[in-house]
Write a protein that binds this DNA or RNA. Structure first.
Length: 510
RNA sequence: GGAGCGUUGGUCAAGGGGUUAAGACACCUCCCUUUCACGGAGGAAUCACGGGUUCGAUUCCCGUACGCUCUACCA
């Protein structure tokens, strides 16, 4: 049978796309690819107040960066248009009405003040949050308690109302979750959820069922936090007469805070100093910039990789997976049931592995942009890529390239004289003077030659070659880092090498 | 309070009636490198607790504890 997988999103009140969201899409994507099925990503705009301008485009951009949506497939394209919830309002209303007509749902006219009153009135120690359920609904203002005439009068005069599902008493509702196996609930314990809101928009519960049916969805993955509302959805599929077509569900484990417990949130990122969003996001209300993995220097391959293995493992020792390998090896059966704490150190390790694994040419454009932002212009692409490949094993983030490679293209602003000074003396200064002169007339400019010359000159001047290597490095790169010095000298060229040594000598003098 | 779900080192985790309970990140020691990394060798550290079942439970069952999620006209 043809599989049709869908992911549904609601932009959070502040917007942004967090780790859990991307992972959900990723698992969906892998599953869809495995079964050569369709893959649908939808974004809710159910509540205009919550809908954040730009969120849709932003989410699409993030997913594109991750390689999870092809460019030609806009999130809301496809044969079942319209896709936006606001444009489907009438469809939901029609099914809600059907449920009322069949006696599975009812009108409720209670105002929010009345609901609040009910919650206070029936609140007890044993039951701190009373629910609008099979017992309490008899005490509220709804079409079950009001006479038919009164209900009709209220409806014709346009009184605000919602449609609530009428949960049956003591029925066992069960489903087979692709990850957890059979899960069951007693209907008595669940409340009469609102299906259609007073503004005529559906709640998630109604929308998800109606859309999944109409759009012929066969598989739906969502976060574990949805498990408690599964009985409502099962009942809806049943009451609407579609139970045979109910998609298979998989409830994914949560991504937890690195410290303590609980769902990972944006706040944790701020607090602990790591991103939780895929890409930079500016909260339109506060103008606050929330950092994203991409801008912080993550490779999409690494990002997907680390997300994939946070809650899934193929049983082998392999940890680095390309998208192709993930498609081949991913299986829902091996997804964990328990949540996993996010570990930023490990995340950086994944990125490091990918930086090393990929040829620099695959990310040189991004790095070039970073150089540009730091005021360093690159003119020779081939040379740039060569340098990146030379230093990449020292970089955990793309942004690390700036420190690790900037000195190849522009002389260090300032050198770490403090590291040389203690052992500096006139003999060494003299040595470098001579060395510069000899470099000027060296025949072939290559690392081996530059090194041999240094050693010979040192021996000649009665200095241990090792003692001048660190000063040389610091003069050339500015600090104690970077690849082997002689290779650096070879790449930056004769004139630049000599210039930097002379500059270094001057700095040490002063 | 209730319901659902979960619990292998600090973290991610493999495994699953009999094992020296893999591996990775982080941490520590050493080697390599007269820089910083990479790399290599080694170290410390784990089956939440209590009852069963069993010749034998980390593994199966039941409790307990703990944690999380939900308990909105949010998703």
């Amino acid at each position: 049978m043809e599989k049709k997988v869908r992911v549904r999103f609601a932009p959070s009140p502040t917007g942004g796309l967090h780790l859990g969201g991307v992972r959900t899409v990723l698992y969906n994507y892998l599953f869809a690819r495995q079964h050569s099925g369709d893959f649908v990503v939808r974004i809710e705009d159910t509540d205009q107040n919550r809908y954040v301008a730009g969120a849709e485009q932003y989410i699409q951009d993030c997913l594109r960066w991750c390689g999870l949506v092809p460019d030609e497939s806009p999130l809301h394209g496809g044969p079942f248009a319209p896709y936006r919830q606001s444009e489907r309002k009438e469809i939901y209303r029609q099914y809600a009405q059907q449920l009322v007509d069949q006696g599975h749902a009812y009108y409720a006219f209670d105002s929010s003040a009345e609901l609040e009153e009910m919650r206070v009135k029936y609140k007890t120690e044993e039951n701190p949050s009373p629910q609008y359920n099979h017992t309490l609904r008899a005490k509220m203002r709804n079409s079950l308690t009001l006479g038919q005439q009164e209900v009709e009068a209220l409806l014709t005069e346009g009184a605000p109302y919602v449609i609530r599902i009428k949960m049956p008493d003591n029925e066992t509702l069960s489903m087979v979750d692709l990850i957890r196996g059979e899960v069951s609930f007693n209907s008595t314990l669940v409340d009469d959820k609102v299906l259609l809101k007073a503004d005529g928009m559906p709640t998630y519960h109604l929308a998800v069922v109606v859309d999944d049916y109409l759009m012929k969805i066969t598989h739906a993955f969502r976060g574990e936090e949805w498990l408690p509302s599964a009985p409502v959805h099962i009942l809806l599929w049943k009451y609407l007469g579609w139970i045979e077509d109910m998609p298979q569900w998989a409830h994914l484990p949560l991504i937890l805070k690195p410290d303590g417990h609980g769902k990972l949130s944006k706040r944790d990122g701020d607090r602990l100093g790591f991103p939780v969003f895929a890409m930079n996001w500016v909260d339109p209300k506060t103008n606050e910039l929330i950092a994203g993995f991409r801008e912080l220097g993550f490779l999409p391959q690494a990002f997907c990789n680390l997300l994939a293995v946070l809650g899934w493992n193929d049983g082998s020792e392999q940890e680095i997976f390309s998208m192709e390998e993930l498609i081949e090896k991913f299986s829902l059966e091996k997804v964990h049931k328990g949540g996993a704490k996010f570990d930023y150190d490990k995340a950086k390790w994944f990125n490091h592995e990918w930086i090393k694994k990929l040829p620099a040419s695959q990310y040189s454009n991004e790095v070039m942009e970073l150089f540009h932002k730091n005021g360093i212009e690159i003119t020779d692409d081939a040379n740039f890529i060569r340098v990146l490949d030379l230093v990449k094993e020292r970089c955990f983030l793309l942004t690390d390239f700036v420190q690790q490679a900037a000195f190849f293209f522009s002389a260090p602003q300032q050198i770490d004289v403090a590291s040389i000074q203690p052992k500096w003396n006139a003999d060494k200064a003299f040595f470098f003077d001579i060395y510069c002169e000899k470099l000027t007339v060296i025949e072939e400019w290559n690392a081996a030659g530059i090194e041999t010359l240094l050693k010979e000159t040192a021996v000649e001047k009665n200095i241990k070659p090792g003692e001048v290597q660190l000063p040389l490095r610091i003069m050339l790169v500015g600090g104690k880092f970077g690849p082997p010095v002689f290779e650096i000298a070879e790449i930056i060229g004769k004139a630049e090498t000599i210039a930097r040594i002379r500059k270094g000598l001057a700095d040490l003098d002063g």
